[in-house]
Design a protein around this nucleic acid. Structure first.
Lengths: 155, 155
DNA sequence: CTCGTTGCAAAGGATTTGCACAAGT
DNA sequence: ACTTGTGCAAATCCTTTGCAACGAG
């Protein structure tokens, strides 16, 4: 009894599906599992992962199914996605909200404490009435490694 | 006399091109002008704009040319681009750095004071050695209007 | 048994790339 | 003239959609 909450993050997929008259399928469970396991994976990467897991003879979900289910899982509040720049978005389990920090140099993705933006969020709310959605934010910049490496740019 | 700076934003394109042995073409001037005029425009929108400006018989640059020049202009430091979520990136003149704030509901793009992230930038630098690139950051969330409108979601 | 789901294949939109010709210096 | 830029068309990449067969409740 700690589950009758609203945004209960532990609701095991099945319940959320039931509540909407939707069905619990193998594919859905797999996609969700893959998202949780990979963290920060693109739909394509998730598909690849599932293909691996399925092995040679195994049946992995089709790309379209992956897309459809990612969308559904997001509506169910079980996963989130973020656009980290050009190309495909990345998905992660919705459990622990965190900021995404992406290095433009190497593409590395780091997570950061959402509290980092508390001040900014407050000011946005006050000044513009804008409610910041921390889970979807992606901060870009340069990581230490790439920063050092950048010393050899100009000839 | 305020121009012999390094990141001089006023350097009229021509100079920057010269400095690299590149050529000043009509298309380049047009693309840059369109970016400045539209602010927050996608490559497609920029192309459309140029087509309008050119009129029926006029010759507007091909889409590929727009892309190529946007990339070039960015390398020259004259424009910046940001990914505001799914889909096309938006470009704006590099002159005045600003944050982008995007409403997930209506797609509206607002600009905010870069200083908003000063605290966060500092902490990222200290904690992770990560240099935040404020010009490329896009903050997503919900604007006041869409927030109010959201009251009618559940049936 | 009845509908939600899935796989397949084809459609689409947004970029990118190869090339021969046009244009800037 | 020499080299860079551009248009065009084809190629990619990522995602979405239509439809008939499949499977969960």
């Amino acid at each position: 009894m700690a589950d009758s909450h609203q945004t209960g993050s532990a609701a095991p997929l099945a319940e959320r599906l039931r509540a909407r008259g939707l069905r619990l399928t193998t594919q859905r469970q797999r996609v969700l599992a893959a998202v949780a396991a990979l963290d920060h994976a693109t739909p394509e990467a998730i598909g690849a992962r599932l293909r691996e897991e399925a092995g040679p003879g195994g049946a992995a979900p089709d790309a379209s199914t992956v897309y459809r289910n990612l969308e559904l899982l997001e509506r169910l509040g079980l996963v989130w996605h973020t656009h980290l720049g050009k190309g495909a978005p990345v998905y992660h389990a919705a459990e622990h909200p965190h900021l995404h920090v992406v290095c433009q140099g190497c593409g590395e993705i780091a997570s950061a404490d959402p509290a980092l933006l508390d001040t900014a969020a407050e000011r946005l709310a006050t000044d513009l009435g804008f409610q910041l959605d921390v889970g979807h934010v992606a901060l870009s910049g340069t990581c230490r490694t790439c920063r050092d490496r950048a010393g050899d740019e100009k000839p």
